[in-house]
């Protein structure tokens, strides 16, 4: 069976076959990375989100075959960065985390948003996070956190 090669959390990896398998399952089962969660399995909630070449992607919709040559980062890899430190602190200060099930996806969506737009307006943050569902908060505290992170992390993005 053919290998699919990609970079996962900064390490080159090769995954054997099952080209139709969902990236979400590959990450959770083959690599034991449980940070990406399954909330809906249909691309609606963003709990399974990962970064692929800096863009936020729902891994439940991503077939393994399409990962060839990509640079993939999960919350496990991202949590070692300085930008994560700034984001998690802002999330804490703004009370953006309740049950935490949406949080890894939200943090990665925040990263992808700030990467593309380091100085977003509130409206832009709302649009940037609208692919990620959270049922515990009313998003306002998450939006605040992203705006705070943009300020506190000036120059990081």
């Amino acid at each position: 069976m053919a290998n699919v090669n990609f970079v996962l959390n900064h390490t080159p990896v090769a995954v054997e076959g099952g080209l139709n398998r969902r990236l979400l399952d590959v990450l959770r089962t083959d690599f034991g990375l449980k940070g990406p969660k399954e909330g809906c399995g249909e691309g609606e909630c963003g709990a399974c989100a990962v970064l692929i070449d800096h863009r936020i992607v729902n891994s439940c919709l991503m077939p393994l075959a399409n990962c060839e040559g990509k640079d993939i980062v999960t919350i496990e890899g991202f949590s070692e960065t300085e930008r994560f430190t700034v984001l998690q602190k802002a999330y804490s200060e703004c009370g953006a985390v309740q049950c935490g099930f949406c949080t890894p996806g939200m943090i990665l969506a925040s990263e992808s948003l700030l990467h593309a737009n380091p100085h977003p307006t509130e409206e832009e943050v709302r649009i940037g996070l609208s692919g990620n569902l959270c049922r515990c908060t009313g998003y306002n505290m998450i939006v605040k956190a992203v705006l705070l992170a943009a300020k506190e992390g000036e120059g990081l993005w």
Binding site: K34, P36, I75, E76, S79, Q88, S92, G100, P104, I107
Partner: peptide
Amino acid sequence: PKTDHWEKTAGTAKYVAD
């Protein structure tokens, strides 16, 4: 700060499906 903040943001909290 919430006492379970870190495990939830860093994605290390293990929910039942994990």
